[in-house]
């Protein structure tokens, strides 16, 4: 398994992006941005279609740019219009998917590519992706750790963060930017449909056992690594699509930690109010 070059690349990328998604996911879930990241990932489909249309053999760049454009548009609409946040996201998500699929169906010979981007494919991870994942993990991971205090305080209370001297608006925009880049890169492995799960499930698994934020962060990074590595390995061994394999490993982790939580008598079900 480890001798094939494409497998080495896929495993390296999984071991880089899995933990990174876990780390960022802690804040994505606490700030209820899961639907936001789903919208960004689905916008990537429009980017992929545009990329193929313009003749790119590797659509990473157009995919990232279109996702970024949609993310900025989403923030702008949220700040400047009376539209409800959910409406904005649903509009952009379904609009991008419809646009992407229509363009790809008009282009001859890209039908097969669609599956690969919807569900992820270890074969599609090229050397450029490995280099990009390395740089992004180093830069984004470093940025998140450096700004951990500020991000945690913004998550707890934005006004309090502002009064404490934190540049809230700039950090919020920066967070959206890095989230977009990480999502766009992770699409190679997980696919458009499932990429958000790597942001949501590892932190949820960690939270089952964590008593504080430090434990949740460490746990989410570990769960992301296990999910990424285990999923890619399972995909190779059993010839399964890569994205769903990663998700199933993550779900198994979640259920295991949930059982451990029940053992510790911190119930998962909320107590009934009489």
């Amino acid at each position: 398994m480890f001798t094939e070059a494409y497998m080495q690349r896929a495993l390296i990328v999984a071991l880089l992006l899995g933990p990174l998604c876990g780390l960022i996911g802690v804040f994505v879930t606490a700030r209820r941005m899961a639907f936001f990241s789903d919208t960004i990932s689905h916008a990537a489909l429009a980017g992929i279609a545009v990329g193929f249309w313009l003749g790119f053999s590797d659509p990473t760049l157009p995919m990232t740019l279109v996702s970024l454009g949609v993310a900025v548009l989403m923030l702008w609409l949220k700040e400047r219009t009376e539209l409800l946040t959910d409406t904005i996201m649903a509009l952009l998500l379904s609009g991008s998917v419809a646009f992407g699929i229509v363009v790809m169906s008009l282009l001859k010979g890209f039908r097969g590519e669609l599956d690969r981007y919807l569900f992820g494919d270890i074969l599609s991870v090229g050397p450029t992706d490995v280099a990009l994942a390395g740089v992004v993990t180093f830069v984004v991971g470093g940025w998140v750790l450096w700004n951990l205090n500020a991000l945690a305080l913004i998550t707890a209370h934005e006004d309090l963060a502002h009064v404490s001297g934190i540049p809230v608006r700039a950090l919020n925009y920066a967070f959206v930017l890095i989230l977009t880049v990480v999502v766009a890169l992770s699409i190679r492995l997980l696919g458009i449909i499932l990429v958000t799960s790597l942001l949501v499930i590892p932190p949820a698994a960690a939270r089952n056992l964590a008593r504080n934020l430090r434990q949740e962060l460490v746990g989410a990074v570990a769960a992301g690594a296990i999910g990424g590595f285990g999923g890619v390995a399972a995909s190779f061994l059993f010839n399964l699509p890569c994205g769903p394999s990663i998700v199933l490993v993550c779900v198994t982790l979640f259920l295991t930690t949930l059982a451990a939580r029940q053992q510790r008598r911190t119930p998962f079900l909320r107590p009934r109010v009489p």
């Binding site: 879930t29 606490a30 700030r31 209820r32 205090n149 945690a152 305080l153 998550t155 707890a156 209370h157 934005e158 006004d159 309090l160 404490s164 949820a204 939270r207 964590a210 008593r211 504080n212 934020l213 430090r214 434990q215 949740e216």
Partner: peptide, 20 residues
């Protein structure tokens, strides 16, 4: 402030919050 907008899912401890 009036209250924190804390999500039930955010497991920040009192100690960690004060550290911020």
């Amino acid at each position: 402030p009036q209250r924190l907008q804390l999500d039930r899912n955010f497991v920040l401890s009192v100690r960690e919050f004060l550290c911020l």
